[in-house]
């Protein structure tokens, strides 16, 4: 198990390879569809600091509010490929070192990971309770009114958040590998049906 503390320098990210299991600690931010559109179409000044050498998490949480503030109740990853049109630009423009989500991303993001020194980390989909428990504190939230709870940008402090590197900064992707193997297998099975 490799420990990553945020913010993380590029050389540490370059050392990661597909298949590495990591635990992440530090401050990160959630971002999904509306947030990505916003970050690319406008200057999202309020999130620049947390994104620089930081990580963003494709997640629309279930939250709860009490007199202590906001809490994450359930917070597994959402499907990442919806952000494919935006992610490469977000990585380049904001200096993001890690994108956490599920299902993997496409060629443009993989190329951006290689060029700028970033990785894609896969969290287990549906692991909502365990991942929410790793969120120790909700520091602040941006665009809550405008985007709604799932789409808002939640700045969270996490401790030992588990994930697997499935796209590294050397052009490797576990998703491409599984897709190619299963496609070949499907071709063979299809003939026997």
């Amino acid at each position: 198990m490799i420990e990553i503390k945020l913010p993380v320098p590029e050389e540490d990210i370059r050392r990661l390879k597909v298949g590495d299991e990591v635990v992440i600690s530090g401050v990160m931010i959630t971002a999904r569809d509306a947030a990505h559109k916003y970050m690319v179409e406008q200057e999202a000044a309020e999130v620049k600091d947390v994104l620089k050498d930081g990580m963003l998490y494709h997640c629309g949480p279930v939250v709860k509010q009490d007199d202590q503030g906001w809490h994450f109740v359930a917070a597994g990853p959402t499907t990442s490929k919806r952000e494919e049109p935006y992610e490469a630009d977000v990585i380049a423009r904001y200096g993001v070192r890690g994108v956490i989500g599920k299902g993997g991303m496409g060629e443009r993001t993989l190329a951006a990971c290689r060029e700028h020194g970033a990785v894609y980390l896969h969290a287990i989909g549906g692991l909502a309770v365990i991942l929410a428990a790793s969120v120790k504190q909700v520091q602040t939230v941006h665009k809550l009114e405008e985007f709604g709870v799932p789409e808002a940008m939640w700045v969270i402090e996490v401790e030992r958040f588990p994930a697997v590197v499935t796209m590294d900064s050397h052009g490797n992707s576990l998703h491409t590998e599984v897709l190619e193997k299963s496609t070949e297998k499907a071709r063979a099975i299809s003939k026997t049906l």
Partner: peptide
């Protein structure tokens, strides 16, 4: 990894039940 992934899922489901929290945030 396939085994440990399933193990996480089972553990998550048990914790969800015990704490009355949604198994997955996408309800």
């Amino acid at each position: 990894r396939a085994r440990s992934t399933l193990e996480w899922m089972i553990k998550n489901s048990a914790e969800a039940r015990e704490s009355s929290r949604p198994v997955c945030q996408d309800t």
